[in-house]
Each structure stands twice: as C-alpha cells, then as structure tokens.
C-alpha cells in the first residue's frame, strides 16, 4: 500500500495573514509558513494505514523554497520520502491549475492511494481533491471521517450535516479527510533526526511534464478582483434569559449547525 499525501504550506492561522497588493497572492513574508492543519490529519491517516497494511508514505508538496520546512515536519511525523514541486512558473496558480500540476507530479510516483486534507486554511476552495481526481481519471472519495482499505478497494465514511454516507471505490483513488478522522501525532526527536536523511526529490515544472502555459498567475482560470482586510469582530449575540434562555441558545447553535 503506497500512499501519497498532499501537503500544502499555508500562513500560520495564529498570525495576521496578508495578501500581496501587487498580485493578490499570499504574502508569504508576512507570517510563518506551517503545514495546512487538515493535511496533518491526512498524514496521520496515511501513517495509520501504513502501520496496518505496510508500504510507503510519500509527501507531495507544491510550493516555494520555504515549503521545505513543512516537508521536513511531515517527514518527522513518520513519512518515508517526499517530492517537492517547486517552480517559479507555478506562482499564483489557482486551485484548478494546482490540481493539474499535482496530477502531473503524481506521474513521477507509484501509489495506490492519494490522501489530502479536505481544504486549506488559506484559500479554502476545497476543490483540489476533486479536480485532481478528474485530472487523474480516478475515483474521488471526499470528506472522509473514516478510511478502510480492503484488498483492492477503499471504503470511507463521508461526513455530512446529518451523519455520514458510506462510499467505496477501487484503488487507486483520491481521498480527502476532515479533522474528525483522527488525532495527528507529534514528531519525536528520533524521527526529527531521521527526517534529515530521508529523500526529498526536487521537481521543476519540466521534470513533472507540466505545460507552463497552463499554470501560473497569468494563465489562471480564476481572478482575485478585489480584497479587503477583515472587518473588526462584531459584537456577540446576548441572550437574555426570560425563562427560555436554554431554548434560545439551542436555537442559535442549531441555526449555526453546531447542533
């Protein structure tokens, strides 16, 4: 069972995140880069599947030089090797272009399963998994809160607002995971030291067979028309208890789909 986990480096959500006014892309200098939180669940799930079924876990990340830090972190959680797709031509690629580039890069790796987080905390499009599956011509199983492998098939529980659907496909397949699926592990000092020696293949666009006319800001299929700083946090809702306070709170939470 060889698994590829897609890892994206994103600006730390704990810091103030900014866009570059020049081209409306993420200002990477404005905050520290960290692994997209949902991708940590994807890594953990891959490691759990590897512990059960054997094989190798490969990290695939598309990003600039500093994405190396996130790749090392993923390797220090226990992944075996990594592929780093890094090319200036990819700068400003939108979700569809990124999916295309990742699909091309996956052509350099042998895999039975691709796992990724269901969305990233910066762009939040949530479409890369689906688009990737289309480019690869593979089944997509999204929003998994449970993944089981049985021989040549994969079965997931897809989380829905009401409960979950059971979805099954033959391998190879693309699976996206939600945060309810597991509890990501911490690295350990031994794994940090071991990560230093694990192979990281560096790929440029040409190495992956990426047509540079199809990627990058100039060729993007979507455009950021305008952006503005987030408004200051609005005042909260005050519930006055006039005998039905509990009901009001429950209604509020239900309206927000917390209940």
């Amino acid at each position: 069972m060889n698994i590829v986990v897609l890892v994206k480096q994103v600006p730390d959500t704990a810091t103030e995140r900014k866009l570059d006014p020049a081209d409306s892309t993420v200002d990477r200098a404005a905050s520290d880069g960290v692994i997209n939180e949902l991708d940590e669940y994807a890594i953990e799930e891959a490691l759990l599947l590897k512990e059960k079924h054997g094989g190798e876990v490969t990290i695939l990340s598309a990003g600039p030089d500093q994405a190396t830090d996130s790749i090392r972190k993923a390797l220090s959680m226990g992944a075996d090797k990594a592929v780093h797709l890094n090319d200036a031509a990819l700068h400003g690629s939108d979700a569809l272009q990124t999916a295309y580039a990742l699909a091309q890069a996956l052509g350099t790796v042998e895999y039975d399963l691709v796992i990724l987080g269901s969305e990233s905390t910066d762009a939040r499009t949530g479409v890369v998994g689906a688009a990737l599956a289309e480019y690869l011509g593979l089944p997509q199983l999204t929003l998994a809160n449970k993944v089981d492998i049985d021989g040549t098939s994969v079965r997931i529980q897809r989380q829905t607002d009401e409960g979950y659907d059971v979805v099954e496909a033959t391998l190879p397949a693309v699976v996206s995971v939600v945060e309810k699926i597991n509890e990501p592990r911490y690295p350990s000092f031994k794994l940090i030291m071991a990560a230093k020696k694990k192979p990281v293949a560096k790929l440029g666009a040409a190495d992956a067979g990426i047509d540079t006319a199809r990627v990058g800001l100039a060729n993007a299929t979507t455009e950021v028309v305008d952006f503005a700083a987030a408004p200051p946090r609005a005042a909260g809702t005050v519930v006055k208890d006039e005998g039905n306070g509990g009901v009001q709170i429950a209604d509020y939470l239900a309206a927000k789909k917390f209940l």
Binding site: R72, K73, S76, Y186, P187, F189, I192, M193, A195
Partner: peptide, 14 residues
C-alpha cells in the same frame, strides 16, 4: 541548526 529548531518547535507545540 534545523534539527535543534525542529526539536525546540516540537517541545513548544507540546
């Protein structure tokens, strides 16, 4: 070094 920093970051996160 990268390894010392990764260890420090691990301890800080924990």
């Amino acid at each position: 070094t990268e390894e010392h920093e990764a260890l420090r970051a691990l301890a800080a996160e924990f």
